[in-house]
């Protein structure tokens, strides 16, 4: 059951009283890749923060690989769910990338060789050896995004949650990231506005709007449904053509 996510009736209001999640139900199978789409303010980031207990639902339950996301299981849940934040400056807080990648495994109690192996393996996945010893604020946007990914891969998570992973990337960096993610075997939740990315990576898409899921469809069907897209402020890039841009799909 590793990598299975089960979200039932989750509601959440921020301390200022604003209700942001209005009963979210979502079941995701092990190894599945699902895109979470929807307009700004739809509650996508808020939902992501629930998946490893940064925020606690006011109603409803969440389990990951059968483990309830609750205080007594935070340690386990945070090992299983890797969260890549939208702003890499929030994610990378150590003086060098290597130390940042080591931060998670060190919290898990790894030391010495076991630690080094974890760190090197995670850096290898993102081709990050060349910037491992540099400080995060001197990296390019693409390098920083790969570094941020490595900091959660070093936890060997069963679920990867990525919040707008391609925002701020140039086309080449975006391409590299897509190829890296496509190779990863774990369950992936990809929050994005990038519809071509959703089509390429995720067979299934859900749309969040006003704090609830308003659609749960195959990504292929979604891109045909121009009304559904328009209702949720989603738009394909100008001139985008499924048949030529993604001949494999």
């Amino acid at each position: 059951m590793s990598g299975v996510i089960d979200i039932r009736g989750v509601e959440y209001s921020y301390p200022d009283g604003r209700k942001v999640l209005n009963g979210v139900d979502l079941a995701i199978a092990a190894g599945e890749r699902v895109a979470i789409l929807g307009p700004n303010g739809g509650g996508k980031t808020t939902l992501a923060l629930h998946l490893n207990g940064i925020l606690q639902p006011h109603a409803g339950t969440i389990t990951v690989s059968g483990v309830p996301v609750a205080e007594e299981h935070y340690r386990e849940v945070r090992r299983m769910v890797g969260l890549v934040f939208q702003d890499t400056n929030d994610q990378l807080f150590m003086p060098t990338v290597r130390e940042d990648v080591a931060f998670g495994p060190m919290n898990l109690g790894l030391t010495d060789e076991a630690l080094d192996q974890r760190v090197d393996a995670a850096l290898e996945v993102v081709s990050g050896a060349e910037f491992a010893d540099r400080p995060p604020h001197h990296l390019s946007g693409g390098e920083r995004r790969r570094a941020a990914l490595a900091t959660v891969l070093s936890m060997e998570p069963e679920v990867l949650v990525l919040d707008e992973p391609t925002s701020g990337l140039d086309l080449a960096a975006r391409r590299e990231l897509i190829l890296t993610l496509a190779d990863l075997p774990m369950t992936q939740l990809v929050i994005t506005h990038d519809l071509p990315l959703a089509l390429e990576l995720c067979p299934r898409s859900v749309i969040m709007n006003g704090g609830r899921l308003v659609a749960d469809v195959t990504t292929g069907d979604l891109l045909e449904d121009l009304d559904l897209l328009a209702e949720n402020r989603l738009e394909l890039p100008y001139g985008f053509d499924r048949s030529t841009d993604h001949p494999g799909l």
Binding site: I54, V81, F85, F103, G104, M106, N107, V152, M155
Partner: peptide, 23 residues
């Protein structure tokens, strides 16, 4: 607010309040 988000990012990776130090 940045501090809050960084703290969240630390919690997400198993931070329990004590900075792990390399040997």
């Amino acid at each position: 607010e940045r501090g809050e988000r960084v703290h969240a990012a630390m919690l997400a990776r198993g931070f329990t309040g004590e900075m792990p130090m390399p040997s």
